[in-house]
Each structure stands twice: as C-alpha cells, then as structure tokens.
Amino acid sequence: MSEGARRWRLALGRYANQQLGGLGGQDGLMDQTLDYLYGREYQGRGLEQDRGPGSLDPTQMQALNWLGKAKGLFPQSVFETLQGHALDRYGLTDLLKDPKTLDSLEPNQDLLRVLLGFHDRADPAIKAKLREVADRIIRDIMERLRHDVMRAFSGRRNRFRRSNIPSAANFDWRNTLRENLKTYDPETRRIIAQTLRFNSREKRRLPWTVVLCVDQSGSMTDSVIHSAVMAAILCGLPGVTVKMVLFDTSIIDVSDRLTDPLDTLLSVQLGGGTNIGRAVTYCEDFIADPERTVFALITDFAEGASPRALYAALARMSEARVRMIGLVALDEQATPYFDPMIAGRAADIGMQVGAMTPDKFAEWLAEIMT
C-alpha cells in the first residue's frame, strides 16, 4: 500500500477496507484506536458496528485505556486533537471520572474548556483533581500572556527622545534609515547601517478603571478564559482598578475574585441566551471618572433582546467620553464571529471594534490608556 493510500485508509476508517485494504501491525493498532473514537460518527448515522474477525469489538477497549493507547501511538499534536474530540465532540466524560486518568490528560486550553463545563457534574471526590488540572492549565496561559501585557504597559515609545539602550521594541527604523543613507551600496542595493537609533520609553501613569463586560454564552468560551487571565494580570498593575462582569441573560459580577482566574471561571455558567444591553447598563455603575475609564465589551454582538438598550447605554458612555472598545474574538486564533449589523452600529456610536489575539489586545489597551 502506498503512503498516500495508507493515510487515506487511516482517515476513512474500516469502512474503506474493501476499496483500500486492511491494516496490520502498528497501523492496525492506530486504526483500532481511531475507530473507537470516530466510529461513533458512523454509528450516529445508522451504520452498525462490525463484530467480525479483525474488527474492534467495543468491549475490548474502554475510554480509560483508550487514552493510554492513543498517547502511545500518535504524535503529541495528533493526541491533543484526539483528546479534544473525545471530550468535546463525543462526550467521553469517563476520562474525567478517575483521578489517575486525569493525570495522563494533556493540559491545554481545549481540556480546560471541557473541565469548566464538567465541573458542576463531577463527583465531589473528583472536583479537587479537576481544579488541580485546570489550575495548571491557567498558570501556563497566564505565564504566556503576562510577558505580553507587561511589555505593552511598560511604557510607550517617545519618538522625540533618543535612548542609548538598544532594544528591538524601541528600534527607531525611520531615523536609522535617514542617518545611514550615505552608506547605500548600489551594487548590493543595501544600506550598511553604521549608526542605529532607538526611542526612549516613558513610564505610564495609570490612574485608570478597566471594565471588562464578557459574554459567557457557549460560543465565547475561549474569550471568557482569556478575559479572566487578563483581568488577573491587569489587577497587578499599579494604579489600575479592574471590574469584570460575566453575562448571558443574567449577570454575574466577579470583580471581587479577579486575582484567582480559576475562581472567576468557576463562576461561569456557559450557555443560555444573551442580553448585552442589560449587562452594559449594569456596567455603567462602575464608571466614576468617565475620561479615565476603559469599557471593554467582549462578545459576538448577537443580541438576544432588543438592541435599543445596548445602543442607549453606549451612547451615554460615548457622550461621557468613556474609552469604549468591542472585542469580537479573544482566543489565540482570533477567528471572528459576530453580528456585523449590531457591531457596526456600536462602532457608529463611538466604540472601537476589533478582533485580535490576547497579546494584541494588551497592546491595544495600552495604547488607549495614554
């Protein structure tokens, strides 16, 4: 069997046996492991499980030992994908019922998403272990984001003052080009830079209030995770007061527990409808000094109620000169999904609307707070 045919056979599963042939050895084990998971897709469409010779009888493998087999057979990236599909798509929550199995799960954001949804339904004996795994994942996310946030808020570049401290973040390419034009080499068509220029950085003064209003509907799970982490980091900045509200059709004020992102996330009840206008109106009570307040609405703008209350609240904030930003994606891929009509109307009122990764959001926030 050619390599191309082998890959297709593994992808299509045992139902392609007649056309592409069977698999043996290591490939056969991989095929059985994949079939245990993705065979559910075929069964969901009414195809019966084959129990003949060489087939995978469901009694031969359970969810708990399936995980160990998959981890040993596939590369890390493939295993993480299989783990995510098992938990998120096919609901193999048996994987979350044994503390020893939890130790073997690969801690990543996909797993955290599932843990948040499963936590309320877990046995009391398992909850502590679930929290331990979730806390490990959050610490990893926090460490990756903390550097980006601190760099963004360390100071803005002052283009009118030069610095002798070399730093890629402070590199002044315009003045460097201007001062080295005389070294241009026409043969290589390059400038040989003999003098490098850098901008100095000014320390920010940050008497600011940041209000995070976060949609906790099912489609916004990644945004909720990163918002909780971002809030915890911002709380550590001098002179910054952070308020945070989670909402669907109800409102949860988590402003008193932001230093622990996991406590914040365990307050989340993902799913339900969406009433953005009600949440934004609630957040107006946090605004004591409008011109030193940033209001960040993190949502897909899919308003379930009449948008009039939302527009009215945004108009009042705009008139008071609150800095308003709308984020339609806050995950690492920044894949935007939003209602363009409502988001467009919010932008017309005065809200800056964008879709970006968490590190870019930190830079955007830092630029606004100058």
Rank of each mutant, 00 (worst) to 15 (best):
residue 328 V to H: 11
residue 363 E to P: 07
residue 353 V to A: 09
residue 273 G to V: 04
residue 295 F to Q: 01
residue 341 M to S: 12
residue 297 L to T: 00
residue 353 V to R: 11
residue 340 P to Q: 15
residue 345 R to W: 11
residue 304 G to I: 00
residue 325 I to H: 09
residue 317 M to V: 00
residue 292 R to H: 06
residue 289 D to M: 00
residue 349 I to D: 03
residue 351 M to R: 05
residue 305 A to N: 09
residue 301 F to L: 02
residue 335 T to K: 15
residue 281 T to C: 08
residue 331 D to M: 11
residue 298 I to E: 08
residue 302 A to T: 08
residue 346 A to R: 09
residue 279 A to R: 03
residue 346 A to D: 06
residue 285 D to F: 07
residue 307 P to R: 02
residue 312 A to D: 06
residue 339 D to L: 10
residue 288 A to Y: 00
residue 307 P to A: 01
residue 343 A to S: 05
residue 286 F to T: 00
residue 357 T to I: 11
residue 342 I to V: 14
residue 362 A to N: 04
residue 349 I to K: 09
residue 334 A to V: 14
residue 279 A to F: 01
residue 290 P to S: 05
residue 303 E to R: 10
residue 275 N to S: 10
residue 360 K to Q: 13
residue 285 D to G: 02
residue 328 V to S: 14
residue 320 A to H: 08
residue 274 T to A: 05
residue 332 E to I: 09
residue 286 F to S: 05
residue 293 T to Q: 05
residue 337 Y to D: 14
residue 360 K to G: 09
residue 289 D to Q: 08
residue 343 A to W: 06
residue 357 T to A: 13
residue 304 G to H: 11
residue 348 D to N: 15
residue 276 I to R: 12
residue 282 Y to W: 05
residue 342 I to A: 13
residue 301 F to N: 06
residue 309 A to G: 07
residue 272 G to N: 04
residue 346 A to T: 05
residue 341 M to Y: 15
residue 349 I to V: 11
residue 325 I to T: 13
residue 352 Q to G: 09
residue 336 P to F: 14
residue 317 M to D: 00
residue 333 Q to V: 15
residue 321 R to E: 12
residue 356 M to D: 11
residue 348 D to F: 11
residue 323 R to A: 02
residue 302 A to Y: 15
residue 314 L to D: 04
residue 304 G to M: 02
residue 330 L to A: 10
residue 274 T to H: 08
residue 300 D to S: 03
residue 274 T to E: 03
residue 330 L to D: 09
residue 362 A to F: 00
residue 343 A to T: 04
residue 349 I to C: 08
residue 340 P to D: 15
residue 306 S to P: 09
residue 311 Y to L: 04
residue 351 M to Y: 02
residue 295 F to L: 09
residue 299 T to M: 03
residue 272 G to M: 06
residue 348 D to P: 12
residue 288 A to S: 01
residue 364 W to E: 13
residue 340 P to T: 15
residue 309 A to S: 07
residue 287 I to G: 00
residue 300 D to M: 06
residue 273 G to M: 01
residue 327 L to M: 14
residue 327 L to R: 09
residue 353 V to P: 07
residue 296 A to H: 06
residue 274 T to G: 03
residue 271 G to K: 08
residue 288 A to Q: 03
residue 328 V to D: 12
residue 294 V to Y: 09
residue 358 P to M: 07
residue 338 F to G: 13
residue 347 A to S: 14
residue 277 G to R: 13
residue 339 D to W: 11
residue 306 S to L: 08
residue 300 D to N: 12
residue 334 A to N: 11
residue 303 E to K: 05
